[in-house]
Design a binder for these strands. Sequence first.
DNA 1: CGTTTTATTGAATAGCCTCAATATCGGTGG
DNA 2: CCACCGATATTGAGGCTATTCAATAAAACG
Lengths: 263, 263
Amino acid sequence: MLTVCESPIARKFTAAGTLSTVELGILSDIHRRRRRFRSGTDFGHNELPNRSLYILASGWGFTYILLPDGSRQIIDFRIPGDIIGWGSLVLPKSDRMVAMITSAEASEVLEADVLSTFVATPGLVRGFLLAASRDESVAAERLAGLGRRQASERIAHFLLELAMRLKAVGLCGKQGFSCPLTQYHLADALGLTPVHVNRVLRDLREDGLVTFQKGKVTFDDFDSLVLFANFDGAYLDCTLSEPRRASGPDHRPKAAERSHPGP
Amino acid sequence: MLTVCESPIARKFTAAGTLSTVELGILSDIHRRRRRFRSGTDFGHNELPNRSLYILASGWGFTYILLPDGSRQIIDFRIPGDIIGWGSLVLPKSDRMVAMITSAEASEVLEADVLSTFVATPGLVRGFLLAASRDESVAAERLAGLGRRQASERIAHFLLELAMRLKAVGLCGKQGFSCPLTQYHLADALGLTPVHVNRVLRDLREDGLVTFQKGKVTFDDFDSLVLFANFDGAYLDCTLSEPRRASGPDHRPKAAERSHPGP
DNA sequence: CGTTTTATTGAATAGCCTCAATATCGGTGG
DNA sequence: CCACCGATATTGAGGCTATTCAATAAAACG
């Protein structure tokens, strides 16, 4: 009998339908490579090895985002059975940070193992994973915005995000983009009232930052807007990290002393 | 030359690394099955066929959640190249709703095609997809909470969500659960100040709903709390929908006149 | 036991909301 | 071509929620 059935993730998966013996076996293999973390461990600076995915076996943690002003927005708590690090599988650098609340144990699954489980067409799988992770990043950023940014910054940030995403598919030029959204859409997306969205848009326009009018978003002063919104589009980066082709030790620059936006 | 390269999703994927000819071919196949939507189309009631995934080719849409009070929280906008419906692939019913802002075109990818692309171990793939979708649901719900619920409801809702998730892995009993979170964690997660979290927790306790104290969450009156928080745990449902085994026409009950929480 | 984290309470302020009214635009039909 | 209509945009006044600043109490920790 496989005692793996008792692991939180197996409980989740089997609650989701019976797994074959082979599949339980794979899950068991996956669970062999364990790592322990002390309570308070904080992978705020990408010390968490990239290119692998963790399945929390015991303990509590959470994912979060650090805003430039030093305030923190927790995206979600991770409890036993939860997966951490989808994004780090495919994104060159995931801005999502992880910290442990209690001491914890997790199974480490290497990128290669994930991908070999998803054999078929690696390129597409990676593509889809990327899309999923990117969406997740966007949701995370939105969450952070709702929780920790005020209306004007939130709106500015959102418009910049849209511009970037549109640029990626060739739908945004230098000065701005064509935008079918109404102020009501903005309100619903950003957790505001249409009335307040309107006021803020007026302010932004009068300050010469952006103009949101008549189905067009025009950046009157892109750089200032970026500054104003504290916008860093890194989380949208569609540059897929190179699949690690077998060999080669990683010469990642050790995250050399990233500047820390201190509180 | 494959003109598929010009499709938004191909642009995104190739920006993510070159795809093989075979992979481009598959993408091309996928793009054959097209559907058109008129502007204003609103799949608020699961009329969007389940068990398939859409890749938006042109037009704008958005995903949203409808709150019991009728207010709407937009989760994210969908632009060309974006994928819609990850959740509906594996979840029996996804509470996420989709609406088109402009007229739009999308490629429909059937569940079977997605899974056959991800051949290997269907059970695990489905499991992982489920986990990913569930996480997404949680993020969506949190987003809705931040945008549209006020502090007390938000906190109550969050505690109930945690309880459900913990129950799924056997970590929550009838009366409550052991919880390592501090009020600071709650604050960061829910976009509040610790001070206000404290006040709200006191209110909830004095109203005999929940007690959050000394590393324990105790439900003093579970039913009332559920009512107070407008909590509907459906979005957490870990029941994976049965994989459709080849045959059989779908006898889905046509979403017969679901009650509509009117504004 | 001192020290640090976590919890608790008060007073004053600010941001955003609610309610309400008016303006503008695009389309429709007489 | 003009009157009309619905959807969107704009502006004002007042109120409430949650914040900020500040101080103290109570646990947790070594």
